[in-house]
Design a protein around this nucleic acid. Structure first.
Lengths: 190, 190, 190, 190
DNA sequence: CATGAATGAGTATTCATTCAT
DNA sequence: TATGAATGAATACTCATTCAT
């Protein structure tokens, strides 16, 4: 008896997600060239061939992971946050809390941040959440809670610091993490 | 003919240095696995085989580059600086000025910082200049010029920021650089 | 329930025949190595696994097809023909008419001829119908209706020409076919 | 001391030609899918990697071989022949003599004919020498030396017969070859 | 029986390294 | 020394075959 259409679809979806999820960490740690399909498939726990059922090439898998790392980086939450009718100081504190919490608890989040930032450095990604942060900064500067200076540069600096700790956590299991308030202070006046 | 002997030695030295110098940027940008000897030799302007006259393997060249990136990162200057009988605030400002100037003017410096930090993250390098910076921070905290907090963490943070801008400058030709005083302010009280 | 048993057997037989029938064309066009089971199953309209219910391996399916292509090539008819008590000229004309008719109307026939000839060229098939044709030729030479020359060579030439048009029809839908009388003339005196 | 520019060029040319020459037979015998690069390189007597210095892929090598098989098939000679101010009968006899001689003596010639014809069947090659032969046939028909009938069809038939014996000689070392005059008789009146 | 996702041995391709010139 | 063509082990990718459903 043939498997039902839906069940097949489900299985495909599951396997595809498994591959993506497990690949993110691998690519974030070792880079594209440093990642071998043989190692990757062992790490995922599937056969090498299975990867090629879902992705045409290593390159394609890598690309897919990037479009996903965008979401991982938390755009949705940030978008929501940036639209709330609250003072910028609170937004930045909430954002920093969210970021630090995730960096600590979710390796995937750290990997997403790392990959996304790297691709951005190579000029191949548009930093959506940089812009949202810029907005918060400008609002905060009006409100007097955020330090003065070019908003774009400050945003870059803020996320740069996040990247720093993301990369650190990818390499060192129990790396000392910056505190949520220390991170917020990058932008806020004392 | 001792003269020609020396000249030979000189030429050897020159070629060797050329390889190292041109390799640093390449490795810093693409990582170890992402750097192909064929591309590298083309970039240097020599034959692939020539590299193997001076270095036993890609691995050895990479290692060599690290021991050099250590120096590039400015240990000597830093060491000197840290021993001067001047207030920590001045040391930190001088160091920041030195770092920013070099990041702006010397791609090799940026590459050295990037490589060194990367290897450090992978736990394969002992961060000599982190310790020197820690010293300055402790001195500064006593003098009241440096913000309070764990000296090691602050040092890591300071150099993390430097790494951030080093990487940025490797990828983007005219990247907006942080100012020397902004960098110093990472450690100094307002 | 003997009835359902039979029905089952029938279905099996049907599927098996479907696979064979549809495979012949595929193998004839692309050769053994050039035929992928994935493509083949798509072309047949069944799942890949189904093929392996009926045949132990690709190799076995291929072999099966050959024993069948032997029959397709029309041994039985030829055998019958060669035994009829009629002049060789008529036999050859009938045979040529039969061959051309089938080449035109039945892709399977063309495929069978092509496969059989290919395997023969590789020395893996015994050309039963070559021998029957040889007989006709010898008879015809005695009767004065067939051109003189080595009977085996003439037989090879005759079937070579048939192969030629068989292959042509496999690749080109509406290929110009040789006429029955042109084919006969390969052997017959004017 | 570096190798001289010209010597390098020479070596490259030689190796490239060696690969092409030795590949023709292999591909002609086994087809594209049936040819493994590992076997091919062993047969040529070089390392697998060497092939990829000269050709981007197996596909590209195969294509290259085809553009060359065109020449092998003897276009130049044929062109010359077709333009000579001699009766068509002589042209056809000369051509047949040339073809049979080469089929007997030069495996490469046979391979070239086989490959070219196969690609033509797949509709991927323009049969230059078919056209030249057509011309000869038309001229001969006017002169009364060539059998009547559609010139294109006759040309196809003639080269089909040549293909037949080309393929045969590829598989069987000492295959019985058609004689030059037998081949000519395919087109000429008795 | 039929399915098609998964497997892994087999094949194509790359790239660090060697070596004749 | 310097070269770059050649090497072959390492890696990416394919496809005949299996197996849980």
């Amino acid at each position: 008896m043939p498997k039902s259409q839906e069940r097949c679809q489900e299985i495909r979806e599951e396997t595809r997600n498994l591959i993506i999820k497990k690949s993110i960490l691998f690519f974030a740690r070792n880079g594209f060239a440093g990642t071998k399909i043989s190692d990757l498939s062992k790490h995922i726990g599937i056969a090498q061939g299975t990867i090629y059922i879902y992705f045409k090439s290593k390159e394609e898998l890598y690309s897919e992971i990037f479009s996903i790392s965008d979401n991982i980086a938390g755009n949705d939450k940030l978008l929501l946050l940036s639209k709330l009718p609250i003072p910028s100081e609170q937004k930045i504190k909430k954002m920093s809390g969210y970021v630090i919490k995730n960096l600590k608890e979710d390796e995937m989040f750290a990997a997403g941040i790392a990959l996304y930032t790297q691709r951005m450095l190579e000029g191949q990604a548009e930093p959506e959440f940089y812009k949202l942060t810029e907005k918060m900064i400008r609002q905060g500067q009006k409100e007097g809670s955020v330090v003065s200076g070019n908003a774009r540069k400050l945003s870059e600096f803020y996320w740069g610091v996040v990247y720093l700790y993301a990369v650190k956590s990818l390499y060192t299991a129990d790396s000392v993490m910056i505190s949520s308030s220390d991170l917020a202070r990058v932008l806020l006046e004392d």
